[in-house]
């Protein structure tokens, strides 16, 4: 239907190289950086830019996982508790074995374990994703607190902080990791069967089922990958503060969802690229840092994140890459008026 009605120019014309999903976001990002630099020159100092990249990296990595889950049309509200658990277990395991590597590995495994639990509940027990992962957020946070008796765990093995505080040339190591994972996640989504099927079940679950996709298994895999990315993000965060913190990043899931939304990924699933997610996370971090640098209170930043998320999902959530927003399609006569008011799923 859409393909038939899209104007011929869009269908046959060769795409300009700059018209990829997320190109608009890249322009916004550059504009924000320039404006922030003009308003407050301190923003553009090398020191500050490096610190922005360092802050953006764990958010971006957690957002890749969130993006995969959102591509399937679900959501993961447990990231904040998962990173807390990852940091606690990571430090504890590192202390027990006496090696930083073991700590990092155990942390990532904890992330994967939570991903398996979430995925099993959503895909096989058919518990609505919001509530299942909300439950994980609650008991996960409780577990993280219980592990340290309400305290943080200090004194990880030597070298534990390398992952979060190290640098590669001028770039912070976490950011390099985020870039490498971006490439891997991009390849996963665009070049592997699993990645295509993740987008497929988000686009049309029934059609995917009918064409032989094992929907439950793919849904589970999306959550497991989200857990893996949350585990990596948690290890990096924990390594940056060089301790296990039960309150490491309690609202990381909200920031990750905001990053995915700001990147212009459809919240209904089935559409989106990893580059969009990455740019969304970067933009969010830049905006937060810019507000910090110009001395705006944290309270304003909370409000800004909320408002930016709402505006982003209203403006970009239903955008279709080439065909314009639903409103614009309707305006161009591509959609009948009533069709735009189609039923949307419940919770």
């Amino acid at each position: 239907m859409r393909g038939e009605t899209a104007s011929s120019k869009e269908r046959t014309g060769k795409e300009a190289w700059w018209r990829f999903p997320g190109s608009g976001m890249a322009l916004v990002l550059i504009a924000v950086v320039l404006v922030a630099g003009l308003v407050e020159p301190r923003f553009l100092t090398e020191r500050n830019l490096v610190s922005v990249l360092r802050q953006a990296a764990p958010l971006a990595i957690a957002a890749y996982g969130m993006g995969l889950v959102i591509f399937t049309g679900s959501i993961d509200l447990s990231t904040g508790a998962v990173v807390a658990m990852v940091s606690m277990v990571g430090v504890l395991a590192g202390q027990a074995v006496g090696s930083a590597l073991a700590g990092w590995g155990a942390g990532v495994l904890v992330g994967v374990a939570f991903g398996i639990i979430n995925g099993f509940m959503v895909a096989y027990l058919k518990i609505p994703p919001f509530i299942a992962t909300f439950g994980t957020l609650t008991y996960g946070h409780g577990l993280a607190l219980a592990l340290g008796g309400g305290q943080s765990i200090e004194f990880p093995p030597a070298g534990y902080n390398l992952l979060g505080q190290g640098t590669v040339g001028p770039l912070p190591l976490p950011f390099v990791a985020a870039l490498v994972l971006l490439v891997l996640a991009h390849l996963l989504v665009t070049r592997t069967t699993l990645g295509r099927q993740i987008l497929m079940i988000g686009g049309n679950r029934r059609a995917a089922e009918l064409s032989g996709v094992n929907v439950a298994r793919i849904q589970l895999m999306a959550y497991v990958l989200a857990g893996l990315f949350a585990g990596i993000a948690g290890v990096i965060l924990s390594s940056r503060v060089n301790s296990g913190q039960p309150e490491l990043a309690p609202t990381l899931q909200f920031d990750a969802i905001a990053a995915v939304a700001v990147g212009g990924v459809s919240m209904r699933g089935g559409r989106g690229t990893m580059l969009q997610v990455f740019l969304g996370a970067l933009l969010l971090s830049v905006v937060k840092n810019a507000l910090n640098v110009v001395n705006v209170s944290t309270y304003w930043q909370m409000i800004a994140v909320g408002v930016v998320t709402i505006v982003a999902i209203i403006v970009g959530g239903e955008r279709d890459g080439r065909e314009g927003s639903r409103g614009r399609r309707r305006w161009r006569g591509l959609l009948p008026r009533r069709a735009a008011a189609g039923a949307q799923g419940g919770m």
Binding site: I75, L77, F130, T251, F254, I257, A258, A261, M267, R268, S297, T298, Y299, W300, Q301, M302, I303, A304, V305, G306, V307, T309, I310, I313, I314, G317, E318, A341, G342, Q344, M347
Partner: peptide
Amino acid sequence: RYHLSPVIVTIAMLSAARGLAFL
């Protein structure tokens, strides 16, 4: 109005309202 997921909209509202309450 925009046929959006209530969870994401109210998460954004959570952030904004809590921030405003502090502000």
